[in-house]
């Protein structure tokens, strides 16, 4: 399975893929996190302009990083440990503010985004992490439902959306299991379901396969690829050389906080 061309494999439309596909064009236009009407639809999804991030006391995690990610792209962020991949993710979530430079997400400059609008940004920006970041005392269903509750969805809406998205990621039969009753791959599927249940225009994944064995990783990659096919922009930080080489997608390589390479159909390098 890992031997064949992964991209080709992933394009086989299964039942779930069909459901996921929906209308890619429509998803792609709903981009602006804070205000969909504000940005023209041709605007890039992400713009980094000479972004520098210095942590206290004096760790330079990102040095004048610049790149543009268009809507609907699938982009790998690669580089050794400590090269600044997670820092980019945290900047996108406005968990951190850059020391210098500009970050624009969905046409909206993050520095101008008020603190009170940050939850709105995050509801339109799915995020997946290496450690899943699930609420450990809640079932798979409740973990996904929480992302809907925070934005004020009604019980009826939640009852309609959650089982559908969980079935989509292949967990239709494990909705009532709590995280420790699920395998790593299954937990990551729950976290992807939670990230995607709002159909956000942008999905960012920080080493989503970092804790998973290769076979499980392929399954997660398939899922992310299918999500990308619906028009959702996917940015994925990874260490997984084999995966990156197979996918032949755009690769942005980092080294010590500097963007050293940016190839349209690259390999890990």
């Amino acid at each position: 399975m890992q031997e064949a061309d992964l991209t080709e494999q992933l394009e086989q439309p299964g039942a779930a893929t069909a459901a996921l596909n929906g209308d890619p064009a429509e998803s792609a236009t709903a981009v602006d996190p804070a205000d969909p009407a504000a940005a023209p639809s041709e605007a890039p999804m992400i713009v980094f302009e000479a972004v520098t991030k210095v942590y206290d006391p004096n760790v330079v995690a990102l040095r004048e990083a610049s790149f543009v990610i268009e809507k609907g792209e699938f982009v790998f962020l690669v580089g050794p440990s400590g090269s600044g991949k997670s820092t980019i993710m945290r900047l996108l979530l406005k968990e951190l503010d850059p020391t210098d430079g500009r970050i624009i997400v969905g046409g909206r400059e993050l520095a101008r985004l008020r603190r009170s609008k940050v939850p709105m940004l995050r509801r339109n920006l799915g995020c997946v992490f290496q450690d899943f970041k699930l609420l450990t005392d809640r079932t798979a269903y409740d973990n996904v439902a929480y992302a809907l509750k925070v934005q004020g969805d009604s019980k009826t809406q939640i009852r309609a959306k959650v089982p559908e998205i969980l079935a989509l990621v292949g967990l239709g039969s494990k909705m009532t299991n709590v995280p420790h009753e699920l395998s790593g791959g299954e937990q990551q599927r729950v976290s992807i379901a939670r990230a995607f249940v709002n159909h956000p225009p942008l999905l960012i994944c920080d080493e989503p396969t970092g804790n998973l064995d290769p076979d499980t990783s392929v399954g997660i990659m398939q899922l992310l690829y299918r999500i990308n096919r619906t028009g959702t922009t996917v940015v994925m930080a990874t260490h997984d050389r084999e995966m990156v080489d197979k996918m032949r997608k755009r690769v942005i390589a980092l080294e010590e906080g500097v963007v050293v390479r940016d190839e349209r159909r690259g390999g890990y390098g």
Binding site: P119, L121, R123, K133, L135, Y146, V150
Partner: peptide
Amino acid sequence: RREIEVMKLVGASNWF
């Protein structure tokens, strides 16, 4: 605090 961090990451407002 981890639980709180997760809540904030999926878009919960401070009041929520």
